[in-house]
Design a protein around this nucleic acid. Sequence first.
DNA 1: TTCTAGTTTAGAATTATTATAAACTAAGTA
DNA 2: TACTTAGTTTATAATAATTCTAAACTAGAA
Lengths: 139, 139
Amino acid sequence: MIISHNLKMYVQKLRSSNLRPTKQRLKICQFLFDRKKTFHFTVEALNKKINKNVATKVSLATIYNTVEAFTNAGYLKEILTSKNKSYYDTNIKSHHHFYDEGSKELTDIHYSQIKLSRVPVPPKGKKIKNLEVVIRIQK
Amino acid sequence: MIISHNLKMYVQKLRSSNLRPTKQRLKICQFLFDRKKTFHFTVEALNKKINKNVATKVSLATIYNTVEAFTNAGYLKEILTSKNKSYYDTNIKSHHHFYDEGSKELTDIHYSQIKLSRVPVPPKGKKIKNLEVVIRIQK
DNA sequence: TTCTAGTTTAGAATTATTATAAACTAAGTA
DNA sequence: TACTTAGTTTATAATAATTCTAAACTAGAA
Ligand SMILES: [Mn+2]
Ligand SMILES: [Mn+2]
Ligand SMILES: [Zn+2]
Ligand SMILES: [Zn+2]
């Protein structure tokens, strides 16, 4: 068994967000963040991957709780693009996506790859919270 | 009871899409399309409004069936922006939206109000199906 | 070691949506 | 007009994603 170099970092990270570094949360941290590329996922998919070929499973409720906690703590970003299912993204920087309607997969588009040269003013009293573009693609 | 000027038009419209002009479909057509401004709605909201203070209700299943049929026929556009709930739009032209996270309401942004001066090329073998921007706003 | 607030868990509940199948009806034909 | 039937409506069941509940467990402070 390979111990993540980053384990201590995750412990600190969790503590700094007032989240106890439990076995389950650390396992999910390692799975989500011990990687170089952005990871996009649904809770269903994460649950399958986390619990594939393991002796002690993390419960689905904990996967949901943890993804929500990590999103609130700013470790993950929620992407609303699909009917009836939330996607999450380990890339928390502001950026855009391709959403493939066939494979139902998200791909990053770097923020600088889309130039919005004209953006409307929001209604009175309202502020823009988020301006990230999802480009739907298909074969 | 005021008879919609457009009733005959709706009958034709439905027939041209191979949809029988039933009482229920015509009632829903009048409710959705006898108006000047774009109407954005969820099925839940439409169901409430259609069945408010009426003797004979349209069943929820029919509301779902009809909204799906109208979307397939191109009378409505589906807007995926909210968690776990689909929105529909009587404005079928390509256009953008503000989505108010507080009131959970959509507002149109005319297509010309957002200028995308740089758009990335889709992955090989994939085509852009849709490029409509949702700007999330809040107080 | 003890204590407790925070966490995990199985399972129930909820919400949005889709499927099922019986009753009904639009509309073509005799 | 009556007959016929494919299409439609409807109540209800089923499904899928998510959230809630409450009991058991545990991290970490004292
Ligand atoms: Mn759903
Ligand atoms: Mn849901
Ligand atoms: Zn991303
Ligand atoms: Zn609109």
